[in-house]
């Protein structure tokens, strides 16, 4: 066999893009922002544990959560499966492809050799859709690749069975039931509530708004974790990469979330949400300022306390703006019960 006819489109983020593309393939016309918003992908966490050699932060919910929350809130059912045995995983993937079923798989991005070597890093939570095979090669729709890509069998298996933290363990999924009609109002409401919960109500000091504030306070400590200037520059550049480049749609997912709010406003016929979408876009602009300031600091190699405090202040402004935003969003949801 060769390729299953599949509409490949680039997306901002691999998981929301993969879920959207798969359900679209099964007849549900839904956008990537809508998948992201319904699944309450908006998030923030700042992490530094004793086993971590350097702090890290996340601007979206846990990998896998987008699919599970989207499924809960829309009624779309996914068949999911993990494997211990790579041969069995490959055999079952092939069987599904031969039946014309595109299948999403979790992989280590490093082995996706259709990207240039300098771009590939070890990240175990990349999602791609396998849409066909021919001999020893597979055709994949990767949200970050402009065209349908080809990958050899060995590299795909290595990617699917990479070990380490959040190891894919051969994980794959595909939709087995897609409702004919979606209750958008209910799904969007649940998504919005989940977003408010993620940002305001998780009782941990490093999650949500509290997490952004912790990041703002702790960034001045970053030099003490760095082995040299190059290492620190790389880590500060990663602020920009995590906010702008690593599948966020820009502004640390805030632009994507603004698009969701605008779409939701139309569906719910709620002008207040439309206003809030503009506000979220402007919050995203502020995150973009954090990115640009970080890139500048890294490029100039000026890691003085004053410069890091400046980034911290920008982060604190984001925390204030998002706290006010999500509190009002929570109120708006209560008013429309």
């Amino acid at each position: 066999m060769s390729q299953i006819p599949f509409r490949h489109i680039m997306a901002a983020h691999c998981e929301s893009g993969t879920v959207a593309a798969l359900v679209n393939h099964h007849g549900m016309e839904i956008s990537e922002p809508m998948v992201f918003g319904i699944a309450s992908g908006i998030f923030f966490a700042y992490l530094k544990t004793p086993v971590m050699d350097f702090p890290m932060f996340a601007v979206r919910s846990m990998p896998g959560n987008l699919r599970t929350k989207f499924s809960e809130r829309t009624g779309v059912k996914f068949k999911t499966k993990n494997y211990r045995n790579p041969e069995k995983a490959e055999r079952e993937l092939n069987e599904l492809l031969d039946k014309g079923q595109p299948v999403a798989v979790q992989v280590d991005f490093f082995y996706m050799n259709y990207f240039p070597a300098w771009y590939r890093i070890h990240v175990n939570v990349h999602f791609i859709t396998v849409i066909g095979r021919e001999g020893d090669k597979y055709f994949v729709s990767d949200s970050y690749h402009p065209q349908i890509a080809e990958i050899d069998r060995e590299s795909l298996t290595k990617g699917r069975f990479a070990g380490g933290s959040m190891a894919p363990k051969g994980f794959m999924f595909y939709p087995v039931y897609v409702p004919e009609k979606l209750d958008y109002q209910k799904a969007i409401n649940a998504g919005l509530k989940g977003g408010v919960y993620n940002m305001l109500k998780i009782p941990l000091p490093f999650i949500g708004i509290k997490g952004i504030r912790r990041f703002a306070d702790k960034i001045t400590e970053w030099p003490k974790y760095a082995r040299d200037e190059d290492f620190l520059a790389d880590k500060v550049f990663r602020i920009t990469i995590f906010l702008e480049d690593q599948g966020t749609g820009g502004g640390g997912f805030r632009f994507l979330y603004a698009s969701f709010l605008q779409e939701a406003a139309k569906i719910m016929n709620n002008p207040k949400l439309d206003e809030m979408s503009k506000e979220m876009m402007s919050i995203g602009d502020g995150w973009r300022d954090v990115s640009l300031a970080s890139a500048k600091v890294a490029k100039q190699r000026d890691f003085s306390r004053e410069r890091l405090v400046e980034i911290g202040d920008l982060l604190r402004q984001r925390a204030d703006a998002e706290e006010s935003f999500f509190k009002r969003l929570g109120k708006e949801l209560s008013n429309h019960k």
Binding site: A12, S143, S277
Partner: peptide, 23 residues
């Protein structure tokens, strides 16, 4: 190339493909 979301000329928000800022 990456996909970003932004405000279009008509005021709507949506995706567009452009070069990566970092790259």
């Amino acid at each position: 190339q990456v996909v970003l979301y932004a405000e279009k000329g008509d005021g709507t928000f949506g995706p567009f493909q452009t070069g990566s800022y970092m790259a």
